[in-house]
Design a protein around this nucleic acid. Structure first.
Lengths: 342, 342
DNA sequence: CTGTTAGCGCATTCAC
DNA sequence: GTGAATGCGCTAACAG
């Protein structure tokens, strides 16, 4: 059997209370000798507190619930790694829940997490989540007094308990890099136009274009769905319009990879004929035939920041001053050529 | 506040005992009317059991600890998905712990999991784990009465509580497919030779070769380390030996991808000049320039099976009849050409 | 400085 | 059929 406080109390002939106090390192209420004795026998008996019991009396456990759509998505597995690292550092744990992008699953997961006494939630909502659904989730967590941090997905949520990426900056970075590399005719494969993050990236693109005195050209914009196939399809659309294209900025990496594939099938070489920039920096980018230049979202850091926000007693229950916004970074690899040198 | 059994007892003017019995659907000890009343008010008050309290009294919670090296590894994120799916189905949860391939971290994670009252562990040990270390882990779990299932990694562990893949069959599948496609000179990029799974694959390869009356040629074998770079380096070694090569079977996908890259840099086309087969079926295979033909390990199914073994009360504590062995599958894509047609 | 007491929410044994 | 009592292992308020 596991050693309990009671056993230590029995052995040392002291009360459970004292033993508990000493072990939890509470303000000096004990003489040094007794303290030492307790600590030694605890060590000797290999005492480790029963965290379930602690959780019961404290009304909450040191567990962060990470509710996301699918851990197989590289985006989320890196986020999860960050969350878990921060947990380990603080003797917390992470319970992982997948929603498969179903809001109903999200709600079920939140409930389960609450029932299990989770000490907080890090929450990347299902992609089908409407504003009303988002509200439902948030209200639930508030009513259960569950500290939470949202991970920016597609919707614009009115809360400061959120970690997100400055996608305007991301769009700006990609476009201005392409511009600097001498590309004039830049095509865009955007995400679904109703998604706020796609809109933000486009805003950033236009800003950069403006700085070079270039007027955005609708003919150079094709809408995708953030999937490999939609990236290929977007290239098809673009090509049909027979506008000149120096480079393509795809609003995520999977579309960029789909685009490259289709370009090649048309005999168009990357980056010699057309340069490509992606977005996300997923694992495979580095190992592609033409390693993909992309805009990196610092997912791991975001996971750590979100976890810290929940674990830290200071920030646990009070809303932050403002959203935690991360700057995306340009990761230069091989998929963009310098046209200035041509 | 959350509704408790006591509140329901107060409202219905019955004892906590009865309420508990009814809600847990225990053998009929109550009259139908009372039962109905209790159930209704529970519903009305939105009662949800406090699982921490349940955990305390039961001495164990419905939580599976998944202890692996790194969730960012596609292999493990798919495994985790399987585990979590099975958990959701049974109202269990999954705590995720990364060891970063450190045995000491593994031990710390196991301890934490035990302290949190985990109801079982699914455990993919760190790659640095020696047999003695493995023993240490297993003894710890046994002493804590923690049901466990190991996920086959590199070492040969004497236990039946393990899910694994028939790697002999995997090697056999790959080689015999290549043979059937008319490749005579098949090179192998193996894993580290001290690792049992690499040995097993090689055994399978030799079996297939034997069936075609081909004698294994040491000149066609290069040892890798299961990394992208080592795959490329292995190609370099192979090429230096200037033996004729029709095809390469790399013992995992990352090495296969590294090999392809290096082959191309030497002006050798895949699959026209050299065909390639990988092993694992990681996410990116499908989206490569030349989609990779590979041997798939059914990770998700393995995760589900392992979880089931722990969740199911029948199999929870007793050792299984035998190891749960999964058959790998050949996934045909584009990286192998049919030489019979040439 | 120290120990007694109460209680977290629940399951279960035992007496009625 | 029913309910009172006990305890899971721990923390914390309170009294000495």
């Amino acid at each position: 059997m596991r050693t309990t406080l009671k056993q230590i109390a029995d052995v040392t002939k002291m009360s459970i209370t004292i033993v508990s106090q000493v072990i939890n390192n509470k303000p000096c209420r004990v003489s040094k000798e007794k303290r030492k004795l307790i600590l030694e026998t605890a060590e000797e008996l290999n005492y480790r507190p029963n965290l379930v019991a602690v959780g019961l009396v404290k009304g909450s456990t040191n567990i962060i619930g990470l509710a996301i759509s699918d851990i197989r998505n590289n985006f989320f597995s890196v986020l999860a790694k960050g969350v878990e690292e921060e947990c380990q550092k603080n003797n917390w744990n992470m319970i992982l829940c997948n929603s498969n992008d179903k809001h109903s699953k999200d709600m079920a997961n939140l409930q389960m997490l609450a029932d299990k006494g989770a000490g907080g939630i890090i929450f990347g909502m299902a992609s089908e989540t409407t504003e009303a659904m988002a509200q439902e989730c948030i209200e639930f967590m508030q009513q259960e007094h569950l500290p939470y941090m949202l991970v920016d997905r597609y919707i614009d949520i009115q809360t400061d308990r959120i970690v997100c990426v400055d996608h305007v900056q991301g769009g700006y970075l990609a476009t201005s890099y392409l511009l600097k590399m001498g590309h004039k005719n830049i095509a865009y494969i955007t995400g679904p136009s109703n998604l706020i993050d796609s809109q933000q990236r486009l805003t950033g693109c236009n800003e950069a274009l403006g700085e070079y005195g270039i007027v955005p050209n609708q003919n150079l914009i094709a809408e995708g769905k953030y999937t490999f196939e939609s990236g290929a399809a977007a290239v098809e659309k673009l090509l049909k319009r027979s506008v000149k294209i120096d480079a393509i900025f795809a609003f995520n990496d999977m579309m960029a990879i789909g685009a490259i594939k289709r370009l090649r099938e048309h005999g168009i070489q990357v980056p010699q004929d057309v340069s490509i920039v992606g977005y996300d920096d997923i694992f495979m980018d580095e190992f592609l035939d033409v390693p993909l230049t992309t805009i990196k979202q610092p997912m791991k850091e975001m996971g750590r920041a979100a976890a810290r926000q929940i674990i830290n007693p200071e920030s646990r229950y009070k809303n932050g001053e403002k959203r935690i916004i991360f700057e995306p970074k340009l990761v230069i690899r091989k998929s963009v050529i310098d046209r200035n040198e041509l």
